[in-house]
């Protein structure tokens, strides 16, 4: 797997100011991991930056009925989430 420069872990809904801040901070080579309320972003047009790989926690996506919106998102379970954090050089928990 290719290394991730910075893994951004976001758990805030798209309306939250920190979510806006997080989206602004994404750089090429970064990855975005959405958990809890942040997975709602995949139903919007907020996260379609081709330079960023988007991951979302599967349990949180399913709970919110968003599986149909997840075509451009990599759904991960808890062990895969741990792997992602191990791959990243830096992590920002928003």
């Amino acid at each position: 797997m290719k290394p991730i420069a910075t893994l951004h872990i976001l758990n805030k809904a798209p309306e939250h100011s920190r979510s806006v801040e997080c989206m602004r901070s994404l750089r090429a080579g970064d990855a975005l991991l959405l958990t809890e309320s942040a997975v709602l972003a995949i139903a919007t047009t907020d996260v379609h930056d081709p330079n960023t790989t988007v991951y979302a926690l599967k349990a949180d996506v399913l709970a919110r009925g968003l599986d149909d919106c997840a075509s451009e998102t990599h759904l991960v379970d808890f062990p895969a989430m741990v792997d992602l954090t191990a791959q990243a050089q830096n992590i920002i928990s928003w």
């Binding site: 809904a13 309306e15 709602l40 349990a59 399913l62 709970a63 919110r64 009925g65 599986d67």
Partner: peptide, 19 residues
Amino acid sequence: TGAGVNWLRKSQKTDGIEQ
């Protein structure tokens, strides 16, 4: 309103989050 509209989405499957 806002993100609150997501309460209304069909097919919520909550087994994985235990709620």
